[in-house]
Design a protein around this nucleic acid. Structure first.
Lengths: 198, 198
DNA sequence: ACCTGAACACCGTTCAAGT
DNA sequence: ACCTGAACACCGTTCAAGT
């Protein structure tokens, strides 16, 4: 707040005449970011339509790398988020998804529908000392305590750390895996029940 | 810190003789929680082994509902997390996964491998006024602005809100969708390349 | 060795007072 | 109408001082 006020050449308390509180501002930022996602998308095939939609969202997230973290913690769904989810639901329903399957789809997609992954420790290790530290930790913890992890760390990057992950590839890999799985469920209505252990 | 000190019948500053800082404590908690996950698991089929492993993790997360939020933000991988990931990697490798496919698997699984989903707005709306508020917001925003979302909200719960989601079902639905998709890629080595658009 | 008091540098937020 | 000063109730953390 104080920092923002300073940026605007004003004291922090002045902000409270224009905004209810900090959460109000953060929700506003979320609205702006989600509003930036291109929604001009009308393909007859639901899969290419949804894929294109999600990749549009991803483009925005790559433009604002701080956005995923913000979207993760701010759960309040403003009009921009609702409009976006509406467009996703429209793609699914037009593609022949039942309401139930569309509902499940939103859950499996998770944050991926908004163009990002939460990759546990791997994401934040892309830059900074995190990757080096993780690699060094693995090395120090000896290859015989965590043999598979060590092998993974070595294989994943010739630079020597976990930071060698190609995030774009991983994102699309996961997206397509999910889209293909959903396509099979959509095709066979019975598969929706059969595909899940009771 | 002050609150924790009070809980221990001591002033906050006393803690710093036993702990480096707050992050140190949080990392310790993460270690304890992840350490609680049962890892006694030796099934010949990788899919049932991994499923069982993940469901064990989920059991821990359901026991400590505050844990997912903590695990999301604390990316530092302590010994407990490393040991857990090692066991997951062992299941995959023993199941015939190439190092690359195992690597991609960790990325698609995301936080699911630790037994939880980040469900955007839907998760936190399970209890509290979030669900009512979201439902009321949808109602207020008129059914003709967000027709599909309104339909979803009505269908998903007879209680009238998005809070009617069966989180356990949704978790297993997504888990099985991913496991089945991975099984197909594992079976056909060429499918690993063909299944992903270049 | 272990704990405490006082203090520092931060937060978000309120409210009476200024122009 | 818009902004400011002073203040409140918080944070995590340090450090000299106590026992």
């Amino acid at each position: 707040m104080r920092k923002l006020g300073q940026e605007l050449g004003v004291e922090a308390m002045a902000l409270y005449r224009h905004v209810r509180n900090k959460d109000d501002i953060l929700d506003g930022i979320v609205g702006v970011v989600v509003g930036e996602i291109d929604r001009t998308n009308a393909d007859s095939d639901w899969k290419v339509a949804l894929r294109r939609q999600v990749m549009s969202a991803r483009k925005v997230m790559l433009r604002h790398r701080w956005a995923p973290r913000l979207l993760e913690e701010r759960t309040t769904a403003g009009p921009a988020v609702l409009a976006y989810m509406e467009s996703v639901m429209a793609i699914l329903r037009d593609g022949g998804f039942s309401i139930d399957l569309a509902h499940h789809t939103l859950h499996v997609m998770g944050s991926r529908v908004l163009g990002f992954n939460q990759d546990l420790f791997e994401e934040s290790s892309e830059s900074g000392p995190g990757s080096e530290e993780a690699a060094a930790m693995l090395a120090r913890a000896m290859a015989d305590t965590y043999p598979h992890l060590t092998q993974l760390a070595l294989a994943v990057s010739h630079e020597g750390g976990l930071g060698g992950c190609d995030d774009d590839f991983e994102f699309e890999f996961g997206l397509d895996l999910i889209l293909d799985g959903l396509d099979r469920l959509r095709a066979g209505p019975k598969a929706i029940e059969a595909g899940v252990k009771a």
